[in-house]
């Protein structure tokens, strides 16, 4: 049974994420102690909140180094959800220019409405379209609806790291991948059966 470590850095809808991972067959460990990362077969970085506050909490509690070692060097599968995906970038611009975890090359910027009818935050169910094959989005048909709630988006510097896009504010990258590290802008824990499929795909990785 996979052990999914959900990183508790004070920024998440942790209960929702835990319930979804349990429902998908994981043994879940929620922890605020970076030492626990060694017990994990899978690392989950959830998060709602701002890039600035998120990085600050990760940094202060010692998670940055632990994540870079385990996911970055040792190759433990990791998924960032929503803000957690954005923190994987090298830099963010929410609350000033801030260094991210740097696990996937790219930056995080605010969405720019493409017309006056576009509202921000981008809230609700929207579709994802594959731009590249990836193990986490396996068996997810093009055009599947996922639940989004965000104002910022991840802009990968290399196209090869983008695995799906979503049409809003023109279009934005809704999922990224770099080796064993994945990020999804949507909330799989709140996207019902296809959300669970994404979680199960992730948990199936070694």
């Amino acid at each position: 049974m996979p052990t999914a470590l959900i990183i508790d850095y004070g920024m998440g809808n942790l209960h929702s994420v835990r319930r979804a991972f349990e429902e998908c067959g994981a043994n879940v460990l929620i922890s605020d102690d970076p030492k626990d990362i060694r017990k994990a077969t899978h690392i989950v970085l959830p998060g709602v909140g701002s890039f600035h506050d998120g990085m600050e909490s990760l940094f202060k509690s010692g998670w940055c180094e632990a994540i870079r070692t385990e996911a970055g060097n040792k190759g433990i599968p990791m998924i960032g959800i929503c803000l957690g995906m954005q923190l994987l970038a090298e830099k963010g611009y929410e609350g000033g220019e801030i260094q991210g975890l740097g696990l996937i090359p790219g930056v995080v910027e605010k969405l720019i409405p493409s017309s006056s009818l576009i509202r921000l935050p981008h809230v609700g169910w929207n579709e994802i379209y594959h731009t590249k094959e990836s193990p986490v989005l396996e068996e997810i048909p093009d055009g599947t609806d996922f639940y989004f709630v965000h104002s910022y988006h991840f802009i990968p510097s290399k196209q090869e790291n983008a695995i799906s896009m979503t049409p809003y504010c023109g279009e934005f990258v809704s999922a990224v991948m770099n080796g064993n590290v994945f990020g999804v802008q949507f909330h799989p824990e709140k996207s019902q059966k296809y959300g669970f499929q994404v979680i199960r795909n992730f948990l199936a990785l070694n």
């Binding site: 910027e109 493409s114 009818l117 731009t131 802009i155 196209q159 896009m165 023109g170 279009e171």
Partner: peptide, 15 residues
Amino acid sequence: HPGITQGGRRSLDIG
């Protein structure tokens, strides 16, 4: 256009 660049946005999403 998988959204890599900020430029060249089109207004396709009217809701």
